[in-house]
Nucleic acid binder design. Sequence first.
DNA 1: CGCGGCTTTGATGTTCATCAAGTAAAGTGG
DNA 2: CCACTTTACTTGATGAACATCAAAGCCGCG
Lengths: 231, 231
Amino acid sequence: MSRKVNINSCNVCAYKSFLFSSLHAKDLTRVNLTKKEMEYDQGEVVIRQGEKINKFMYLKSGLLKISQDIGTVGNQFIGLATPLDFIGLLSVFSQENYQYTITAVEPSSMCHIELELMKEIVKRDGTFALKLLEKMSSMNEAILRNRLQINRRNLRGRIAYILLYFCREVYQSNKFVLPVSRKEIGELINMRTENVIRILSEFRKDKIIDISGKEITILDTGRIQQICDFG
Amino acid sequence: MSRKVNINSCNVCAYKSFLFSSLHAKDLTRVNLTKKEMEYDQGEVVIRQGEKINKFMYLKSGLLKISQDIGTVGNQFIGLATPLDFIGLLSVFSQENYQYTITAVEPSSMCHIELELMKEIVKRDGTFALKLLEKMSSMNEAILRNRLQINRRNLRGRIAYILLYFCREVYQSNKFVLPVSRKEIGELINMRTENVIRILSEFRKDKIIDISGKEITILDTGRIQQICDFG
DNA sequence: CGCGGCTTTGATGTTCATCAAGTAAAGTGG
DNA sequence: CCACTTTACTTGATGAACATCAAAGCCGCG
């Protein structure tokens, strides 16, 4: 179950230099005093699609899944959020309610600030506003680029792409434990579970990767890159 | 060829109420004095991918194509911009250079403001900053939603989707002239030209639409909607 | 007029989803 | 803790959806 944790000072948080560095001492203190830090277990839902947005949230550590219910058709897995990402990335400033469901796929620690306070600071502190604009802009661009990249590839290319994504963007290691099921990977890169499995097995047979349950080791980065580029 | 046109007052522009309504008289005057209004012919390139970003641009009238060169593979057609959209939507505040190429697919009229002036106003006017944040946020969300919608449909569903998109979002009419070639539609919704044509013909035979060159008339909105929903 | 790009249709082959069936793993209640 | 249920994983077979190839008509443009 999610739980509130000891309040740490914002002064020692990686986020300070990322976003709040320019903040006036007075505002930083207010953020420090009103923020709430929460921890979530693996599998726990952080935000449910449709809930009212009243917090500005950001991920301090862990890994989150961003997805969307699409009626009977199933679930669209849109992407992952890694530390320093804002949550509710797209909707925070434009919608009343969350358009996406956020789930912790690894134990995660997050900070909340009242959205009203955020808006207040934006209104008062233009330098901060500009910085926020830049961050949101580049985050949105990254998500879109990812989706475009995935959808123009064939299945083998998609698997190669997502493996390199985990390797480079999430774990910074050739060896990692998949944070999601093969079914979910299928939802993320628009293909059937069976084909996710088939192609992973194929890569294993070709000695491009090694698989042991959810643990993946990339053996031949060059080949994977090649499949990603030309697939 | 693109050309500068008579300067109209920002006071009578639709954009004023859309974005600049809260601006102080002083800032509005500055915008008014330094802005440039340009007109572009059909087919003219407005922005070339890679160019330095130094203007904040918005579309007053016409229709723009947003696309991206992706090496040898061809061209990714990302979406269209309709009046009141900002241009360089994603990159303006996060990148040095444009990530996308913008082309006028209908005669278009645009306004430019120096990006530095924009940033200056953002810094000084928090209410404006917040408004801009909201607009950018909702624009980005719309683009992403579109891409997700397109990619989870089969080919008939994609064609139905894009026809309804033109009908509802762009032309507000059941009868419209396609602003782009069938090849480009294929690039927009990730399918081959031949299949774009085949499915359009199929819809024509089924008396769901009428085709005359680039002119399309949607005859049976209900059926199209159904194909869009279940395809 | 002739060239190149767009459009169209048909034929063919590949890729991928679907169906089926079985094993393994993980959660659940007695 | 064990039987039971459910969910995840895996492989093979089949057919549908889609890309590709080919050929011809069309249209605008130098």
